[in-house]
């Protein structure tokens, strides 16, 4: 897994500015509060609100 746990220490949700965590598949960063998943593409977390997917989708 190229995305390290370190990333979680330097990134927050751009919408609520709260904590995020890596999803089980390791291909997204999840904000529980906003119910959003920020995809990780080519090892780059796409921390854009308008490109985030709903957590329940």
């Amino acid at each position: 897994m190229a995305i390290s746990e370190e990333l979680l220490e330097i990134l927050a949700c751009p919408k609520c500015k709260g904590d995020i965590f890596l999803n089980e598949a390791g291909d997204g960063l999840v904000c529980e509060h906003c119910r959003l998943v920020y995809e990780i593409r080519d090892d780059i977390p796409i921390m854009l609100i308008d490109e985030a997917k709903p957590l329940d989708g």
Binding site: I10, A12, P14, K17, M47, I49
Partner: peptide, 21 residues
């Protein structure tokens, strides 16, 4: 004050793509 300050920045410079804790 984080919310209002962030909002003021977003109005000026657009959406953030990375935010630190």
């Amino acid at each position: 004050l984080l919310g209002p300050a962030a909002e003021a920045l977003e109005q000026c410079f657009g959406m953030p793509d990375m935010v630190s804790p």
